[in-house]
Amino acid sequence: MSARTDVEAEQNQASSGVTPDTLGATLREKLEASHVDIADLSGGCGQMFEAIIVSPKFAKKTTLARHRLVNSTLKDEVAAIHAWTPKCYTPEEWEKKKGGS
């Protein structure tokens, strides 16, 4: 459900307690993520997020296994929002991607 006003957006985000900052803090703590970039694509209502997550815990894991790890780590948060799109990289993969290779 999208918010119709800025006030409604703030109320939705406050009621779910899910913000880019709370998501990032949890990922840094529980997945030892060295880089987390979370974008709120919902216009500020806190219902649709896209994330880039860099963690050594993704090593030797398939994309599906990485997503499952992230989703289980954020189980309560993901349940409270409408859409969640993680992009998961190991530190080595992230360095290559940043370098344009």
Rank of each mutant, 00 (worst) to 15 (best):
M1N: 06
M1I: 02
M1Y: 08
M1L: 01
M1E: 01
S2G: 14
S2M: 06
S2C: 10
R4N: 11
R4H: 06
T5I: 01
T5K: 02
V7R: 14
E8H: 05
E8I: 02
A9V: 08
E10C: 07
Q11S: 15
N12T: 14
N12R: 13
N12V: 08
Q13Y: 08
S15C: 13
S15W: 13
S15L: 14
V18Y: 11
V18P: 08
V18N: 06
T19N: 08
P20Q: 10
P20C: 10
P20T: 07
A25D: 06
T26H: 12
T26V: 09
L27S: 01
K30A: 01
L31K: 02
L31P: 00
L31A: 00
S34R: 07
S34C: 04
H35I: 12
H35M: 13
V36G: 09
V36R: 03
D37T: 14
I38V: 04
D40C: 07
L41Q: 12
L41S: 11
L41T: 12
S42V: 06
C45L: 03
G46N: 05
G46V: 00
M48R: 12
M48V: 07
A51V: 02
A51M: 09
A51W: 03
I52R: 13
I52G: 08
I53Y: 09
I53E: 07
V54F: 00
V54C: 06
V54Y: 00
V54R: 00
V54D: 02
S55T: 02
P56R: 10
K57S: 12
K57Y: 03
F58E: 02
F58I: 03
K60I: 07
K60F: 13
K61T: 03
K61W: 07
T62Q: 02
T62K: 05
T63H: 00
L64E: 00
A65H: 05
A65F: 00
H67C: 01
H67P: 00
H67N: 03
H67F: 04
R68H: 05
V70K: 04
T73W: 06
T73V: 02
L74R: 02
E77Y: 12
E77A: 14
V78E: 01
V78I: 10
A79F: 08
A79I: 04
A80I: 04
I81M: 06
A83W: 07
W84L: 01
W84N: 01
T85F: 06
P86G: 08
K87D: 11
K87L: 14
C88S: 04
Y89G: 12
T90N: 03
T90F: 05
T90Q: 14
E92L: 15
E93D: 15
E93F: 15
W94E: 12
W94G: 15
E95V: 15
K97F: 11
K98G: 04
K98I: 10
G100K: 12
S101Y: 12
